[in-house]
Design a protein around this nucleic acid. Structure first.
Length: 106
DNA sequence: GTGATGACGCAGT
DNA sequence: GACTGCGCCATCA
């Protein structure tokens, strides 16, 4: 893993997400100019081996659904983490999505 | 070198 | 309004 990839860009971006806030794949892809939201999800697929750990639970799809929860240790872990930060989630979907959505100025 | 896959997004129907 | 298909770019087999 000594080889740095654009993963670091995605990881760094996600780590910049404030506590209690979330971001979307499209936002990350747009902010990092990756060109595809798929790249973000694919990069986060390996975030579990990243150091320091990446708050991947703060990254959701455009609809605010916890689409990536299935990749966590448990399908409820992602929801538990978000709820622990004060984010309301129902049926694996963020309720006040627009309120917790975090978007960088740049 | 080619084909297939992936935690998505958007346009078209 | 809801569903389907295609495209994005990078990595793995």
């Amino acid at each position: 893993m000594t080889k740095k990839s654009y993963f670091d860009d995605v990881y760094d971006f996600v780590r910049e997400v404030p506590h209690g806030r979330v971001t979307t794949y499209g936002t990350v892809a747009n902010a990092l100019a990756l060109g595809s939201a798929r790249m973000v999800g694919w990069a986060l697929n390996q975030c579990f081996g990243a150091e320091p750990p990446v708050p991947a639970h703060r990254v959701v799809n455009r609809k605010g659904e916890l689409s990536g929860r299935i990749h966590f240790s448990t399908p409820t872990l992602m929801q538990e983490l978000l709820e622990s930060e004060g984010i309301i989630i129902e049926d694996n979907v963020i309720q006040n999505f627009e309120e917790v959505l975090w978007i960088p100025d740049w």
